[in-house]
Amino acid sequence: MAGKRTRILLSLAGIAVVGAAALFYLTLPAPLPEAHWAGLGEPDMANGERVFWAGGCVSCHAAPGSEGDAKKVLAGGLALKSPFGTFHVPNISPDPKAGIGGWTLAQFGNAMTRGVGPGGEHLYPSFPYNSYARMTPKDVNDLFGFLKTLPASANVAPPHELPFPFNQRIALGGWKLLFFNDGPRAPLSASGDQVKRGQYLVEGLGHCGECHTPRNPLGGFQSGRWLAGAPNPEGQGRIPDITPGSKSIGQWSEADIVTYLETGFTPEFDSVGGSMVEVQQNMARLPAEDREAIAAYLKAIPAL
């Protein structure tokens, strides 16, 4: 009898060990192989700049309060408050020590699209790699080339202030297992190159869903609620629903959306507010065809 019980216990322990090992394996950082980032050639700086504005890098990485050209010094330092603690945005200027000047393209690409830092560690999804995961290797290469042309800064941002267990980077493997996703976010009611470009800009580079889609208690996107609006992570107010089902923005025409992204004015000549001001300023720097693609995509997603 005792032998049988021991056997059962041993089997259970074995299952637990295998399970733990599997979980450990599944939650390891998963960078893409070097080959994925090889042979991309000389970066196209014009496209790199377009990716730069579409990606909204300056909105978080510019030194807080900087204006005009000073915004292109990506010194970091902005404090991002979240329900999990305060994140301090890092320096991504080309400084070889404080910034990313010493990084390889593969390190940069894996940070952008896999949320894996230069030392092979998991990055916090406050950096929107769960959106940037959709970026093409070419866009990553062009952006990396463009970032290197910007001024260097020696600023070092303070470490994140996160309570246990959120300060355990290993736990991010579990988060990624549950929520990391580089596929389409929602079924589309239209197809064609323009809507596809809009999808790439909204779901990928523009990372619109990071604020406009509501999250569950673990910080993953709620399913079936793509761009349906969410509480403002910075405090009071709400981030609006931007699907065709929205009472306000849902009524806008594609041309209205294009004008808004270009000028900051709504069809009622109300003007953009809050953190959307910077986003709109970035969008205004894109070619008109990109704003039109975003508008076409926003009309093709499910109404919520």
Binding site: N232, G237, R238, S248, G264, G273, G274, V277, Q280
Partner: peptide, 21 residues
């Protein structure tokens, strides 16, 4: 003129206006 005035609108809304939609 629209651009200059619009920038003033944006500067204030960025700091002091909350979205409530």
């Amino acid at each position: 003129a629209v651009k200059a005035l619009g920038a003033d609108c944006g500067a204030c809304h960025q700091a002091y206006r909350l979205k409530v939609d």
